[in-house]
Computed example of a mutant assay.
Amino acid sequence: MDAPTTPPNPHYDRFGGQDAVQRLVDAFYRAMDELPQARTIRAMHEVDLGPTRQLLTRYLSEWMGGPGLYTPERGAPRLRRRHMPFAIDAAARDAWMACMRQALAETCTDAGLRSELEAAFRRVAEALVNTQAAPAPPAALND
């Protein structure tokens, strides 16, 4: 008798596959550059978002149930550990979620799927909160 298997995460195919994941990531980082409340979390990233975009695309592809593009390259996600160097408080979590909600609104026409993904992203964002204090403002580049 075969061992029971966990059904695959259906979000990847329902969302539209790799091209849709890439559009989501592009919309997410565009929102991060545009939304005033996202300034603090944008400052946590490198100026050049190219490598970060690629990394998030690989992660989300796998996380949504698509091809395993992240784990073979980076190992287990361990998101909380990877984000510990950053002061992530409720405001940072909410700013991240505002960017993701905007990106989902732009890229996901299926309201039910959008709601499922938003709830899942909310759980992830909540798990990354690691401080009660507000993050320090970024230092000026010319200081």
Rank of each mutant, 00 (worst) to 15 (best):
R39M: 08
P10C: 00
P7C: 07
A139E: 12
A43T: 00
D13L: 10
E106C: 12
P135E: 05
Y70G: 10
C99T: 10
L79H: 12
A139W: 01
Q22V: 13
R78W: 01
M100F: 10
P72N: 05
M64W: 12
D2I: 02
F121V: 07
F86M: 11
W63E: 10
A76I: 09
A119W: 00
V124H: 09
Y70A: 06
Q37G: 00
D143A: 15
A27H: 05
D94F: 03
D143L: 15
Q18W: 12
L117D: 02
W63V: 04
C99N: 02
G50R: 11
A31H: 07
T71P: 13
L24H: 06
D19K: 14
T131C: 11
H11I: 13
P135M: 09
Q54G: 14
A95L: 04
Y29F: 15
A139P: 13
A27E: 09
A90E: 13
R14E: 08
G66D: 04
W63D: 05
I41M: 15
A87S: 14
D143N: 14
T109M: 00
A38H: 03
E73D: 11
M97A: 10
A120T: 03
I41A: 05
C99Y: 08
H83P: 08
S115M: 12
L79S: 06
V124D: 07
G66Q: 03
V21R: 08
E62R: 02
M44N: 07
L113D: 00
A105P: 00
T57F: 12
F121A: 15
T109Q: 05
A76V: 08
Y70I: 11
A38P: 03
L55I: 06
R93H: 09
E62M: 04
G50H: 08
E118W: 05
A120M: 06
E46M: 08
F15W: 04
E46L: 12
L49T: 12
E62I: 02
L49E: 02
N9L: 04
P7W: 01
M100C: 02
R101Q: 13
P137G: 06
R23L: 13
A43L: 07
A125V: 07
